[in-house]
Structure formats: structure tokens, C-alpha cells
């Protein structure tokens, strides 16, 4: 029985992003699909640390009533968000330079132009 929770939805989003990376031919769309994959990984790990009826891992002056969610995946995914952001911007800059040089963003055309 497959539960429709954050873990399975995260895996589905990762697979969707990978499908886009494998089939799209435009460089900008490939970069967008990479970021979709990054979002899927973040959703997967954050929901891995979920606890039923848990509150966020922030103490209210030393007093806590409910169980708390796992703070470790959240802290690791904070790093992942930063890396995804800057890697996307770097990839977009590279795509701009590619367009300036070859006047196309299509992967097949780029391979043909390099073989000429």
C-alpha cells in the first residue's frame, strides 16, 4: 500500500525532473528540470524528519509541550537549498555564454556545430 505522503511525492518529483533532463533539448529547460529535481530531494528529506503532530524545533524559552520534528534533515537541507540556488545561477550564466558564442541553445544543434 503506497501512502500519499511527502516521501512518495518527493520521489515522484525527482523522477519527473530526471525525465525532463533526459528528454528536453533546450538548455534552459534542462536547468529548470535540475532545479525541480533539487526541490524533490528537499521535500523527500524534510518529510523524512516529520513526526506526527510535531511542532517546529524551536523552543519557547525552555518550555515544550508537543513532540518536535527531526531538526537534522532540515539543517542539512538548508545547505542544499543554498547550493541549488547558486548552481542554478552559475548554470544560467553558462547558458548565456553558450548562446552568445553559438547563437543557439538546442543541444543537438550545439553538437552539430561543434563537429563542423
Amino acid at each position: 500500500m503506497i501512502g500519499f505522503n511527502g516521501i512518495t511525492v518527493g520521489i515522484i518529483i525527482i523522477l519527473l525532473g530526471l525525465f525532463g533532463v533526459l528528454t528536453k533539448r533546450n538548455t534552459i529547460k534542462i536547468i529548470m528540470c535540475l532545479y525541480v529535481m533539487n526541490s524533490g530531494v528537499i521535500l523527500f528529506f524534510v518529510s523524512l524528519g516529520y513526526v506526527v503532530s510535531g511542532q517546529a524545533a524551536i523552543f519557547d524559552h525552555g518550555r515544550t509541550l508537543l513532540p518536535m520534528v527531526d531538526p537534522l534533515p532540515q539543517a542539512v537541507m538548508l545547505t542544499s537549498i543554498v547550493i541549488g540556488l547558486v548552481i542554478t545561477s552559475l548554470a544560467l550564466a553558462l547558458a548565456l555564454k553558450i548562446y552568445e558564442e553559438y547563437k543557439t541553445l538546442d543541444v543537438k544543434d550545439l553538437i552539430n556545430k561543434q563537429n563542423d
Binding site: I7, S47, L48, P67
Partner: peptide, 17 residues
Amino acid sequence: LLSAIKINFGQPKTGLS
């Protein structure tokens, strides 16, 4: 990847946290 659906969702998992 879908072998990960065997993880029981919503339970605390590690003693470290």
C-alpha cells in the same frame, strides 16, 4: 527509489536528533 515507501512515515527515527 520506491523501496523508500517502506519507511514508516511520521515516526521518530534516530536517537541523534
